[in-house]
C-alpha cells in the first residue's frame, strides 16, 4: 500500500475530500460490488455449504449436514492424491516454459522491425481459442496412429517409431503440458512486451555509456524495472492454470489411468460421473484454500506488497 499512500500524499488531497467523496466512491463501486456479490459470492457461499452436506444427485430428498465427511472421503481417494501431485507438475511445468519463452519473445519483439505488427497478430492467436477447442485440436494432432505430429517427427527422422503421446501416462502429461504452454505463452509475451516498452530508453542509453553489455543490461535494468509485472503476471497465471480444466478435459479427460487428472478435472469428474456435488464442492474448497495459501506465501516471499492488489 506504500505507493498508494504516496500518490495520495503527492496529490495533497486534504482529508476532508475523502469523506466528501464518500457517496461518489460508493456509487462507483456499487455496480461492480453488487454484481460480484450476487452472482459470484452468493453461489460460492452456497457451493461451500454443499461441501459439508451429502449433496448427491442420487437422492436429493434427504440432504443433511455431514461435517467433514466429504473432505475425508475425497482426501482418502488415491485419485485425489494423484491429482494433487499432478496439479503441481501441471502448474510448474506449464508456467516455466510459458514464462521463459514468453520473455524471450517479448525481448525479441521490443524493438520495431518490419512486419512486427503482422507477426504479433499471428502469435496472439492461440489466446483467441477456447481451452476446450485447444484440447480437441491437440488430440487430433497427437493421435498415436494417424496424428500429424508423429507423422512429422517420423518424416524428419527425429524418431523411429510413433510416440504414444496419449496412451502412455508420462507422455500424456507431457502432451497436455505442451498444449498448455502453446496456449499460455502469448499471455506472458503480451504482458512482458508491454512492460518492456514502458522502460524509458534513457535508462538503456545511460547503461550503454557505462559500458554495460546486453546481459548486464538485462539483469541490471530490464528485469528490475519490469519486476512488478513479472510477479503479478506469474501469480495470476498460477491461479488460472490450476483453475483450467477445459484443456485436459477435452485432450485426455484425465487419462490414461488418472495420470493427467489435476484437481480441477478431478472435481469436474465428481460432478459429471459421480454426480456428487458435495464431494465436488469439497475439492473446490480445498483448491481455493491451496491457492489462498500459495498467494499469501508468494506475496510474502516476493516481498511484493503490491501483489495484494491482484
Amino acid at each position: 500500500m506504500k505507493t498508494q499512500t504516496e500518490t495520495v500524499a503527492e496529490r495533497g488531497l486534504p482529508s476532508f475530500l475523502i469523506s466528501k467523496h464518500g457517496l461518489f466512491i460508493f456509487l462507483c463501486l456499487l455496480p461492480a460490488l453488487l454484481l460480484v456479490t450476487v452472482f459470484i459470492y452468493y453461489p460460492l457461499f452456497k457451493g461451500v455449504i454443499m461441501a459439508f452436506q451429502n449433496y448427491s444427485l442420487f437422492d436429493l430428498t434427504n440432504i443433511n449436514f455431514i461435517g467433514l465427511e466429504n473432505f475425508k472421503t475425497v482426501m482418502a481417494e488415491s485419485g485425489f492424491k494423484e491429482s494433487l501431485i499432478n496439479s503441481f507438475y501441471w502448474v510448474f511445468f506449464s508456467l516455466i516454459p510459458q514464462f521463459v519463452i514468453g520473455f524471450i519473445v517479448a525481448l525479441l519483439l521490443r524493438r520495431k522491425f518490419r512486419g512486427r505488427g503482422i507477426y504479433q497478430a499471428f502469435i496472439f492467436f492461440p489466446w483467441a481459442m477456447s481451452g476446450f477447442l485447444i484440447g480437441l485440436i491437440w488430440r487430433w494432432m497427437l493421435n498415436g496412429q494417424s496424428g500429424v505430429i508423429n507423422d512429422l517427427l517420423l518424416k524428419l527422422h527425429l524418431i523411429d517409431s510413433a510416440i504414444p503421446f496419449l496412451s502412455d501416462p508420462n507422455w500424456a502429461m507431457v502432451s497436455v503440458i505442451v498444449a498448455n504452454v502453446w496456449y499460455g505463452i502469448t499471455f506472458f509475451a503480451i504482458m512482458i512486451l508491454a512492460a518492456l516498452q514502458s522502460i524509458p530508453d534513457e535508462l538503456f542509453e545511460a547503461a550503454k555509456i557505462d559500458g554495460a553489455n546486453y546481459v548486464q543490461q538485462l539483469f541490471k535494468i530490464t528485469i528490475p524495472y519490469i519486476m512488478p509485472t513479472l510477479i503479478v503476471t506469474t501469480l495470476l497465471r498460477v491461479i488460472w492454470i490450476l483453475n483450467f480444466p477445459d484443456l485436459i478435459y477435452s485432450l485426455t479427460n484425465g487419462g490414461p489411468a488418472g495420470s493427467t487428472h489435476i484437481l480441477s478435472t478431478f472435481m469436474l469428474e465428481k460432478i459429471i460421473f459421480g454426480q456428487n456435488y458435495g464431494q465436488a464442492a469439497a475439492v473446490g474448497v480445498i483448491m481455493i484454500f491451496l491457492l489462498l495459501f500459495f498467494s499469501i506465501f508468494y506475496v510474502l516471499a516476493t516481498k511484493f506488497n503490491k501483489a495484494g492488489d491482484f
Binding site: 459470484i40 452468493y42 472435481m267 489462498l292
Partner: peptide
Amino acid sequence: QVIFAFFITQMIPIFIGLAPLYLL
C-alpha cells in the same frame, strides 16, 4: 478488502457455484 474480494474471485473454480447459480 474490496481489492481482496476481487482477487479471490480469480481462484474460484467455476463448478463450485454452478448449481447454486443455476437455481438463482
